[in-house]
Each structure stands twice: as C-alpha cells, then as structure tokens.
Amino acid sequence: MGEITSLRDAIADLAFDGATVALEGFTHLIPVAAGQEIIRQGRRDLTLVRMTPDIVYDQMIGAGCARKLVFSWAGNPGVGSLHRFRDAVQNGWPVPLEIEEHSHAGMANRYVAGAAGLPFAVLRGYVGTDLVAQTPNIKPITCPFTGEVLTAVPALNPDVGIVHAQRADRAGNVQMWGITGVHKEVVLASKRSLVTVEEIVDHLDPRPGAVILPHWAITYVAEVPGGAHPSYAMGYSERDNDYYQAWDAISRDRDAFGDWLTSTVMREVRAILGDQA
C-alpha cells in the first residue's frame, strides 16, 4: 500500500476498459498528467466521474475514452464551454456520451458517503429543480425522527480514484495543502487509488492546515513534477491561465483537437514504441 511506482505502471495496473474512474481536484491539484496517461494507454468505455470536468476530461472525452460522465459542472473555468464535451453530448462525437448530472453539494456528499462506507448521503438539495426528473440517482427520503422530507443520493465508490498532491515521503504517505476539495473523500471512497505528487521527500515537514493521507490508505504513489499543469500545485506552480484560454480554440475544432492530440499526448507513445522497435 502506498507503493511508489511510475505513472505508466500505476495506470496500467489500475485503469481497465469499462472501469469507473474519478480524477478529482477542485481547480487546484488536478491530476492532468494521469488523465493524459489514460489517453495514451488507450482505455475505452470508462465511466468518468468528476465534480468539475474541465480541460483534462475534455481531452479524455475527445480522445474517445469515455462512455459515461457523472458530474456537476462541466466547463472551462473562467473561459467558457468545453467543446469536446459539447460535441460528444450534442453530436455523439467521437462516441456517444451518456451523462448523469448532479449539483456540487450532491456530488460532494456522494463521495462523503462512499468514504464513510454508507450506501447513501442525505442533504437539503435539488428540491424543485428539473435535475430530479433527469437523474434517477436523486430520491426523496423521510427523516425517521422529524418526518421532514430530504434528498438522498447514492454513495460513489469508483474503481479507481486519482488525485494530485504536493508531496509524499518514501513510505508513500501523502501531504497536501491549499484547496483540497474532495481529495480525501475520493481516495477513501475508491476501491483502488493513485496519488501523483510534485516530489518525493525524505521527511514530510508539518504544515498548518495540511491534509495527510497515510500510505496504507492509498494504492500507488507516483512522482510526477508538474503533473497538475495547467492547474497548479500551491507552493510549486501557478495556474497557467493562458493554457485555459488557448484550450478554447484548440478544442473548438475536431481537426485542431486531433492535431493537438497527436502532437502532444500521443507523441510520447510514438517515442516509447520507437524505443522498443
């Protein structure tokens, strides 16, 4: 547990065709490099789970990895729409994408229930919205104590949960700080997990407000400096806002996206195959 390995080997072992995979990171510490490794390894028919599908899920959807998306907000934050996601939903390109849609509060609570080993979570939410009619996983529930009618959503327990963090030590204990979103919840809720980190250090210096995940709660740790780019890792990098802006034009057009895919993510595949030939 908390085994330190390469990104390539971790993804090869964890992600299988048809798996339910959650990559989390709320604007900060998004495991982008891990998502691109899933594209490189050619995984298909994934159920992708993420509160805020943004650039990395747009890339995975455009590359044809996903059969279904479970989410609460799909956009390019601060910029606009996700064009590969829209093309998949509106036109079924490159493959049709089934969607299961929630609110942030609903998704966050689904992870909490998953982490807690409970079958569902209760919240005040969704009432009066049209999401209730479109998402079968939103149900009313009556409080056994007060009789009040609340909302229930089922636990999320992905096959694989992946996050990025600042640091790990050599035993695979992980330390993260800043905006940690649902990092702890998704790792604890998932059957198996991977944390990519900026660096592996001899000793984790205590930091106020840091979240620690002990090595025995994690399947794999991989050192991937810059693995959150274009999002950021507080203390290591800044958010690359220009990349988010540039993605709008790249993703708008199928051919431009295809060129981007072959010239960036898949170039490494050719390099690897070339080495082996």
Binding site: W73, A74, L82, R86, A105, G125, T129, L131
Partner: peptide
C-alpha cells in the same frame, strides 16, 4: 429535450443549493 439539447451548458455547479439556502 434534455437528452438532445440544442446547446449544452456547463450545468448546476453549486447554484441549486446556493439558490435554496
């Protein structure tokens, strides 16, 4: 048609519960 929208927008995010609470 929710399943076949003219324009797919980002979705709910935090808004339903912000509007409620």
């Amino acid at each position: 048609d929710y399943r076949s929208p003219r324009v797919r927008l980002p979705g709910a995010g935090g808004a339903p519960e912000i509007a409620a609470s």
